Computed example of a mutant assay.
Amino acid sequence: MNLSNAAFDLAAERADQERDAGIADAAVALKQPGSAICIECDVPISRERRLAAPFACRCIDCQTLHEAEKYHR
């Protein structure tokens, strides 16, 4: 195995570890109880959102902003 293959393998292994950690974090989050009030803006979370995502702790607007900031850094 040459050095470039080792580096590629290490990067692939790290990506797998990060993916697996993200999946594990999501599984834990899905088991947590949600909230009736958004933790960001203190506005009630809609009934529809709480039914669709009982684990939600942000209203849809704040969750959209949160995800945009998290994934578009």
Rank of each mutant, 00 (worst) to 15 (best):
Q17E: 12
R58W: 09
I60T: 11
N2T: 12
C38V: 09
T64V: 04
Y71S: 07
G34R: 02
L30R: 15
V28W: 06
R14V: 07
Q17P: 00
I45A: 01
A26K: 07
V43W: 08
E48S: 15
A52S: 13
A27W: 06
A7S: 09
N2D: 15
F55P: 00
E13T: 10
R49S: 03
R73K: 14
L30Y: 09
L30H: 11
S4M: 09
A21F: 09
D42P: 01
K70A: 15
D25Y: 03
R58T: 04
C57A: 10
H72G: 03
R73F: 06
F55E: 14
D42F: 07
D61Y: 12
S35E: 04
R58A: 04
V28K: 14
A53F: 06
Q63P: 05
N5L: 12
D25F: 05
D42G: 08
S35D: 10
I45S: 01
R50L: 05
R73S: 10
M1T: 09
R14Y: 07
I39S: 13
R49Y: 04
E48T: 14
T64Q: 05
I45K: 00
C41Y: 11
I60Y: 04
K70G: 03
Q32D: 11
C59P: 03
E40W: 05
I60N: 08
R50A: 02
C62R: 01
D16S: 12
H66I: 03
A29I: 05
H72Q: 07
G34L: 03
S35P: 02
E18P: 00
P33G: 04
L65S: 13
R14G: 00
F55D: 10
Y71D: 09
A52M: 06
K70P: 00
P44H: 05
R50T: 02
A68R: 14
G34M: 04
S4G: 00
S46Q: 06
V28F: 08
A29G: 01
I23N: 06
A29D: 13
D20P: 00
A21D: 08
E40M: 07
L10Q: 14
N2F: 08
A7W: 01
L65R: 15
A26L: 15
D42R: 12
D61L: 10
I45V: 01
P33T: 03
L51M: 13
A27N: 10
E69R: 15
Y71Q: 07
Q17S: 05
K70S: 12
C59Y: 02
